[in-house]
Simulated scan of single mutants.
Amino acid sequence: MADPQIAQKSPFVEETEPGTYWWCACGKSGDQPFCDGAHKGTAFVPLEHAVTEKATLAWCGCKHTKTPPFCDGSHRAL
């Protein structure tokens, strides 16, 4: 599988309401950090994540995290 496109070399830190979110794994979405369908035709698929209570979350922006969909600092090595 090809490497994902790096959307940004830092997390997307957002106050997130409860709900179901689809994290972009390919890095091509125009609605980062969430999927807008730009992965179609690639081997990438978005990752579904349910948020049960309002929280400030650090969604991975580099798409190289070992703990998807959240930032683990992997962007520091890119």
Results as ranks from 00 to 15, higher is better:
G61K: 07
E17P: 13
C35L: 00
D3R: 13
Q32T: 00
Q32L: 01
D72I: 12
L78M: 03
E48I: 05
R76M: 11
G73H: 08
G19F: 09
T42L: 01
A38G: 12
T52V: 11
F34I: 01
V51D: 11
S74Q: 10
A25P: 07
C60Q: 06
K54A: 09
P33F: 06
P4K: 00
G30I: 04
G41H: 07
G61C: 11
D72P: 06
V45N: 15
S29G: 04
P68W: 00
V13Q: 11
T65H: 06
H75I: 02
P18E: 07
A58Y: 02
E14I: 15
C26I: 02
L57W: 05
D36T: 09
S29N: 03
G61Y: 08
A25C: 13
E17M: 14
T65S: 10
P4W: 00
L57N: 05
K66C: 05
T67W: 08
R76L: 15
V45Y: 13
S74W: 07
G27Q: 04
G30V: 02
F70Y: 08
K66P: 04
P4Y: 00
C60A: 06
F12K: 15
K9A: 09
G30D: 04
F44E: 03
C62F: 08
A77P: 09
A77I: 12
D36Q: 09
C62R: 01
C26T: 01
S74E: 14
P68T: 01
K66R: 11
E15Q: 14
L78E: 04
A43I: 15
W23S: 01
W59C: 06
Q5S: 15
K28C: 07
G37C: 10
G61A: 04
K9I: 09
L57K: 07
Q32A: 03
G19C: 07
D72L: 07
V13K: 09
A50P: 15
H64E: 14
C71F: 02
W22M: 14
D72W: 10
C24K: 04
Q5P: 15
P18S: 12
E53Y: 06
A50K: 14
